[in-house]
Design a protein around this nucleic acid. Sequence first.
DNA 1: CCCTGATTCGC
DNA 2: GCGAATCAGG
Length: 201
Amino acid sequence: MSWTDERVELLKKMWNEGQSASQIAKELGGVTRNAVIGKVHRLGLSNRNGGTPAPAAAPAKEEKPAKEARPRPAPKAEPAPEPSPEPAAAVEPEPETEAEAAPAAPPSRKQIIPAGQPLPPQPSANEISPEALAKVSEVEKKARKLGLMDLTERTCKWPVGDPATEDFWFCGLPVQQGKPYCEAHVGVAFQPMSSRRDRRR
DNA sequence: CCCTGATTCGC
DNA sequence: GCGAATCAGG
């Protein structure tokens, strides 16, 4: 693959949007993140900034005549505000209509509700296939119990437990391609949107 | 471990 | 110019 005009533009666009080199590489296809980074540098837009004063004056370049000179100046003067886990926009047009798929408060089997007896209709749980739920509780045993900081693009971000206590962690199992959750949790998070129109009453 | 960008250097 | 290998860090 070569750096066609289009590809370069997409590269620029994504880079300026704060996408990571690997994400850009994936999007472009046919190149590695190294290639992307290399190109970025060659294009002179290593800094995703309109204009950084670059206070760090270029230190005198001193090449060691030594055969094995390994000049490793680390003028890391750029905090690079990592946009956290999700500034990412919709990379792919997800056909989610209004999908309330995003579980703001996923199933913590442990009810936070003090002594509720009538057990209010579980907002979501009661509409999820039993198999899926079973899968979830099963998978939770194998969960990696990751902390917030341990989450990556390919670790299941399904929260378990009560965030207000120490007994809180994220599933952390390998996610299903593209989704934020592992297979089991995708099963309960993304409902096929059915049984919904009985809004009658 | 997973990831990030940065740099070097043979091609 | 290109990008793999490597480095340095989170």
